[in-house]
Simulated scan of single mutants.
Amino acid sequence: MRKSLMRMTLRQLQVFNAVCDTRSYSRAAEEMSLSQPAVSLQIRQLEELIGQPLFDYVSKKLYLTDAAEALKRASLDIFGRLESLDMQLSDLQGSLQGQLKLAVESSAKYFVPHLFAAFRESHPEVSLQLVVINHAQAVRRLSANRDDLLIMSQVPQDGSLEFLPFLDNPIVAVAPAGHPLCAETSLTLQDLTPWPLLIRETGSGTRQACEDYFHQKRAHFAQTLELSSTEAQREAVIAGLGLALLPRHAVRRELEGGLLRELPVRELPLMHSWCLVHPRGKYLSPVAQTFFAFVRGERARISALAARFGGRPANR
């Protein structure tokens, strides 16, 4: 190892990460409560230790060099290890402490807070950093190793991931109360195709799963409206703009309250499993290890917890 690298300080790495995140010396200085010359000095010293420039300026914009990208990955690992050490020391004192960095696909965001609340009953000093993303973003975050764990429904089959299926994610067809199809007792996907279909944006796992299923069943919707969130889909259905295929968990309250009706489509629900995922070989912090073990060991409890979200509500 280069001896110069041993002279890097944690403070320098903190300043460097702030510049990477803000793409600005002045904003990094404000975030770190430092002067801008102090930030410039810390970066200049880092560049001398590494022997390469860390940032390029192009058209008044700051870009990371290849050396900065490598240093960024190493610094995240270093701070992750220190955070893990803090957790282990807390564990030795008899309590699990720290933060769980969890990214979830949007279809799971309605259930995950309840899952974490159940986990916190045994580990009250663990905090949560929750990021809600779509499927395409989840794949990118896995590649970048940005989170402790991810919850997603369609795990890429590339062999580089460890995953634990733990709960069904039923996707159902919904219509506004009073829609003509609500009077039917049995439908097929083909029966839905004359009506406008509200779909998620490109990159959504639910959209991809539904499109694959439509292709398999030869169901073609001539008119579609694209919306960027499950909430927008749900409200658009209530407003009468069309039908939608949505996770039952996401519309539980609207089904129970009578604003929406679940259509009796014979080919539905479309079943996928939510999976807890991390890169194979990734070092998991004590908090992440404990949460993973909780999900693996409490299947019955999790299923009971999800019953009020995933059960088929009575149509009103």
Rank of each mutant, 00 (worst) to 15 (best):
R7Q: 15
R7A: 15
Q14D: 10
C20W: 07
Y25A: 12
Y25R: 07
Y25F: 15
Y25M: 15
A28K: 05
A38R: 04
Q42I: 03
R44T: 11
L49H: 13
F55N: 11
D56P: 00
Y57N: 06
K61T: 11
K61L: 11
K61F: 01
L76E: 15
I78G: 07
F79G: 12
F79S: 13
G80I: 00
S95C: 08
K101I: 09
K109F: 02
F111P: 00
F116G: 07
F116P: 03
F119C: 02
H123N: 13
V126C: 03
Q129T: 10
V131G: 01
I133W: 04
A136Y: 08
R140T: 14
A144W: 02
N145F: 10
L150V: 09
S153N: 13
Q154M: 14
P170F: 01
P170T: 07
G178H: 06
G178M: 08
A183Y: 09
S186E: 09
L187E: 05
T188D: 05
T206M: 04
Q208L: 14
A209E: 02
C210V: 08
Y213F: 15
Q216L: 15
A219M: 09
E226I: 11
L227F: 03
L227I: 04
E235F: 04
E235T: 02
G240K: 03
L241N: 09
L263F: 12
L263H: 06
V265S: 01
L268A: 04
P269W: 05
W274Q: 09
G281H: 10
T290H: 01
F294I: 02
F294P: 07
E298Y: 13
P313W: 06
